[in-house]
Simulated scan of single mutants.
Amino acid sequence: MSVRLLQLSDCHLPAQAGQRVHGRDADAGLAALVARLLELPPFDHILLSGDLAHHSGSDAYLRLLQLIEPLAGERHWLPGNHDDIDLMRAVDKGGKLGCKEVMLDSRWTLLQLDTTARPDGRGSGALAGAELNWLQERLSALQDRYLLLALHHNPVATGSRWQDEIRLGNPEALQRLLEQAPQVQGLVCGHVHQALTLQFVHRPLWSAPSTLVQFARGCETFTLETDPELSTPGCRWYELEADGSIQAHEVWLSTGFEEKWPHV
C-alpha cells in the first residue's frame, strides 16, 4: 500500500475572508480547490508547505484549517516567509501540526524543515544552524527508513532571475548533509508558485503550485502567469510507494473556475 500525501502551498490567506490578493479571493479559490479534491480518493496526510497567510493575523490560520476540514488526512504544516511562526504555534494547540518529524507509515518518514532564518525582507530564507544540526541528527538516526524532506524555499534555481534571488540562501549546507543520506528519496517545496520537477543532490525535487495564483516562468521580474492552462489554483499530491519510489501528480481547477465561482 502506498501513502497518499497531499501538498497545499502558498495559500496567502488575508486578514479577512473576501479580501483580494493579487486580484483573487484567496479563501474562495482554496474552497473551490478543496471541492475538486473531494472528487479524488481520500488522502492519508496533508502537508501545508508555507506562505499560508499573507502578512495577516491568526484568523487566517484558523480559516485555513476550516477550509480544508472536509478533506481526510492528518494535517502538517511548516512556515514560509509570509508566515508568522508565533501565530502558527498559537493556533496549533499541542504542536501537532508543526511536528517536524512525522511517521507516515511503517516505511516512510516526513521531515519538515523551517527555512525562514535570515530573512532579507524580499522573500528569501535559510536553514538556521540549529535546524541543520537537527536534520543531521535525524538523518543519522533514520537510516533504515525512506525519507521525504519538505521545505518552503526552493534550494535550486528555477530560471526566473527574481525568484532565484530569493530562493534558499544556504543550499550548500543542505547538499552536504544529503550527500551522506541515501535514504532521502525526494524533496518537496513551495514558494515558487509553479509546478516544477527539478533535481537536488540527484534526488527529485517537486515544487507545488499555489492555491491562489501562479508566477510566470523564465522572467526577469515579478510576473503573474496569464496562460489559462497554467494560471488557475492548483496543488500536488504524491504516492509514496513501499519500494521507496515516489509518484507525483498535479491537480488544477478548470480554466472556467472563475465563472463557476464568480466571487473568486
Rank of each mutant, 00 (worst) to 15 (best):
S124Y: 03
T116P: 10
G94T: 04
R107M: 06
Q183C: 06
R118T: 12
L142T: 03
G169P: 01
Q136P: 00
L149T: 04
I166T: 14
L97W: 10
A181N: 05
E165A: 15
D105K: 02
Q136D: 14
Y146G: 02
R176M: 09
P171M: 01
Q183K: 05
G159D: 15
L104N: 06
L149I: 05
L97G: 07
P182Y: 04
L187K: 09
G125R: 11
N133A: 13
E179D: 12
T116M: 09
A173E: 11
S160C: 14
A141H: 08
Q180T: 01
P171V: 00
P119M: 12
L174D: 00
T115F: 01
D120Q: 13
L132D: 01
A130N: 07
C189P: 03
W162G: 12
L178R: 00
G186S: 08
Q175C: 10
L113P: 03
T116A: 09
E131Y: 03
L110R: 06
E165T: 10
T116S: 10
T109E: 03
R138F: 02
P155H: 11
Q136R: 13
E131F: 02
G121F: 14
T115E: 07
A173S: 07
K96Q: 14
G95D: 06
L97D: 14
Y146T: 02
